[in-house]
Design a protein around this nucleic acid. Structure first.
Length: 282
DNA sequence: TTCCAGGGTCCTA
DNA sequence: TAGGACCATGGA
């Protein structure tokens, strides 16, 4: 089934034929930190584009500038066949029930640099506080557009001092943000990461300061469409230890087991395990 | 007061 | 290569 775009007005579109897109889950499951809900719409900004998104039958309603629709189609990962991916996961006895509990989980293709910095901030942190720190950084160093703030450019963050970012709550991650921004502005090209072997892609990202295997996998999964990535955080570690009845499994071993078991759908399996357990929906 | 959070770095054995 | 101390901060 192919996505179908219905134009309702000059800035309102319905996209159908994509199965369930559960906005309440997609925008609040820990993959992004800057979307908020107002009435029935979720509102977000990426680059200089602003969109309002709402779940409808078999798809979404999106309100945005008409020339930004293609941008948002990519950002919202409309072209990916989640219906087939979910069907594949239903063949796994431990995941099948989770798919039915929350079938509308999907991924976003976020801006690479924003995603990279956001997950550096996520290290040993909680989602509420991550959102707070990113919000302060955007309000301090971003540009205001229609009441919202852009994510600051790498060149702006590269000029910050350690104390600048510590004052916004970044703590010891301030230096990681600055060093990563400086390296990025030197001319980093992330395009090869779309197709590179997952192990090599992960290793390359860990070259950035403050980026380990877990953060690298988050960036690959949440901004570069790498659905074979499997981030291992504290929640996933607990779930996998429980699943395999082995609390001695290392993070590397967990990642290896996930790759072998879920393959190209490892990321989606990861998100089901993370979301269902974190929100205690079992 | 202690533990914990979508962990990473650095040092040591 | 593996394990452990340390790192900021605020909510539970």
């Amino acid at each position: 089934m192919e996505p179908v775009v219905h134009t309702l007005s000059d800035n309102t579109f319905h996209i159908t034929g994509i199965g369930l897109f559960d906005c309440d889950v997609v925008f609040d499951c820990g993959q992004c930190f800057r979307w908020y809900k107002e009435s029935e719409y979720w509102i977000g900004i990426s680059g200089t584009n602003i969109a309002r998104v709402m779940t409808i039958d078999d798809g979404i309603e999106i309100v945005c500038a008409p020339d930004a629709l293609e941008y948002w189609m990519h950002y919202l990962d409309i072209e990916y066949d989640y219906i087939s991916a979910r069907d594949a996961l239903r063949g796994d006895s431990d995941i099948s029930t989770l798919v039915d509990i929350s079938p509308g989980i999907r991924f976003l293709n976020q801006d690479f640099f924003e995603c990279l910095i956001s997950f550096i901030i996520s290290a040993n942190n909680n989602i509420k506080r991550i959102k707070s720190i990113i919000d302060k950084i955007c309000k301090t160093y971003g540009t205001q557009i229609d009441g919202m703030y852009t994510f600051p450019s790498a060149s702006i963050l590269a000029q910050c001092t350690d104390s600048d970012l510590r004052a916004l709550g970044a703590g010891y991650r301030a230096d990681y943000i600055i060093e990563t921004a400086r390296l990025y502005t030197d001319g980093y090209d992330y395009e090869p990461l779309y197709t590179r072997d997952i192990v090599a892609a992960r290793a390359e990202l860990t070259f950035f300061k403050g980026v380990g295997k877990k953060v690298a996998d988050c960036v690959l999964l949440f901004s570069l469409m790498r659905k074979d990535a499997f981030p291992v955080d504290t929640w996933i570690r607990k779930v996998m230890h429980d699943l395999y009845d082995d609390t001695t499994l290392s993070d590397s071993a967990i990642g290896q087991l996930a790759q072998e078991r879920f393959g190209a759908n490892a990321g989606l399996a990861n998100q089901y395990l993370f979301h269902i357990n974190r929100t205690n929906l079992k």
